[in-house]
């Protein structure tokens, strides 16, 4: 758990972060969102004390960070930044092994862990382990960045616009990857972004920041349904709020489930349980379907969903 109590950060006379209070529960993903210069990155960097705070108190699992040795503090927090920050003179494997090496893990355990993480992030050991960061694509490099942050199995993950420099398709892939990993590992995560869609997709709770303050701290659904101010309303976008709400839920939430999964009829078309309602509606409108079967990950038909139901209850 991370707690920020009345935390302020000043640069000279300018106030970058102004008396903010924020609690990030264990295992949740807290996304700090706001335009550039709103203080979100500064807030993140105060948590691992790359920037010391001017006033207030920051507690990590109940301990004041100023009382801890900064290196010890950071070794227990994974850190991923935009542009990866991978060391250009080290191979992928050595980059990932960095924190375990600092923690003086035995050689075999490090090798094993590197292998494990490469597999987790869908990077092929044989082709990637001995490459240098410059030889990777942007998406691959950022996967390595995430692997490096997870290497020593920290409880906390700090991510500073990690996917900001990637193209749209790669970014989306990595977001899905991140959701998958998070569902397995349940790290307490603080994630900074200026992209509201990224925030809505990844967050357990979103903290909207403006001019050094937290304007609203709530679940994505509540941020969309009940924006606390005009600023938040503009940020989430007034017009397509309905569609955005739909993208927070999956087909699974609204489908009419069969009592037993059954084998599909050959050649049958349909949706997947994990598709968002927004995607489902879009497909159904395009194909002019009123009702379609829903399949699970194994390809079995687990239920059906109707267009009426999505329109009535989706948003």
């Amino acid at each position: 758990m991370i707690e920020l109590k009345n935390v302020t950060r000043r640069f000279g006379d300018a106030v970058a972060v102004d008396r903010i209070n924020l609690t990030v529960e264990t295992g949740e993903v807290c996304v700090l969102v706001g335009s550039s210069g709103c203080g979100k990155s500064t807030t993140l960097r105060m948590i691992n004390q790359l920037l010391p705070h001017s006033e207030g108190q920051i507690l990590v699992d109940g301990n004041d960070v100023t009382a801890m040795n900064p290196e010890q503090l950071r070794l227990n927090m994974g850190y991923v930044i935009q542009g990866t920050g991978l060391f250009p003179h080290w191979t992928v494997a050595r980059n990932i092994a960095m924190v375990p090496q600092l923690l003086k893990w035995p050689r075999e355990r490090i090798d094993e862990r590197v292998h494990e993480l490469l597999t987790l992030l869908d990077l092929d050991q044989a082709t990637h382990a001995n490459k240098y960061p410059q030889q990777l694509s942007g998406g691959q490099a950022q996967r390595v960045g995430v692997a490096r942050a997870l290497a020593a199995n920290p409880n906390i993950l700090l991510m500073d616009e990690p996917f900001g420099a990637l193209d749209a398709i790669t970014r989306e892939n990595l977001q899905l990857e991140m959701l998958r990993i998070q569902s397995q590992l349940r790290k307490t995560t603080v994630f900074v972004t200026h992209d509201i869609d990224e925030a809505l997709r990844l967050a357990t709770r979103i903290a909207v920041m403006d001019q050094g303050r937290i304007i609203q701290h709530d679940t994505p659904e509540n941020i969309l349904r009940r924006p606390a101010s005009v600023f938040v309303e503009n940020l989430v976008g007034k017009q397509d709020r309905g569609l955005k709400l739909m993208s927070l839920h999956t087909v699974r939430d609204l489908m009419e489930a069969h009592p037993q999964p059954r084998e599909p009829e050959p050649g049958a078309d349909g949706l997947k349980e994990d598709d968002s309602l927004r995607v489902a509606l879009s497909i159904m409108l395009w194909q002019n379907w009123r009702q379609v079967p829903v399949f699970n990950a194994d390809g079995q038909e687990t239920g059906t969903i109707t267009r009426e139901r999505i329109i009535q209850e989706g948003a």
């Binding site: 290196e71 950071r74 070794l75 227990n76 927090m77 930044i81 060391f87 003179h89 600092l102 960045g145």
Partner: peptide
């Protein structure tokens, strides 16, 4: 030396001396 590299090294828990010796000077 790329500022993000230095920031990442510090943020991952290297001491300033380790950053100098293992990252900055080799680069």
């Amino acid at each position: 030396v790329d500022a993000t590299v230095r920031q990442a090294a510090l943020g991952m828990g290297m001491s300033p001396f380790q950053v100098l010796l293992q990252v900055e000077l080799p680069l």
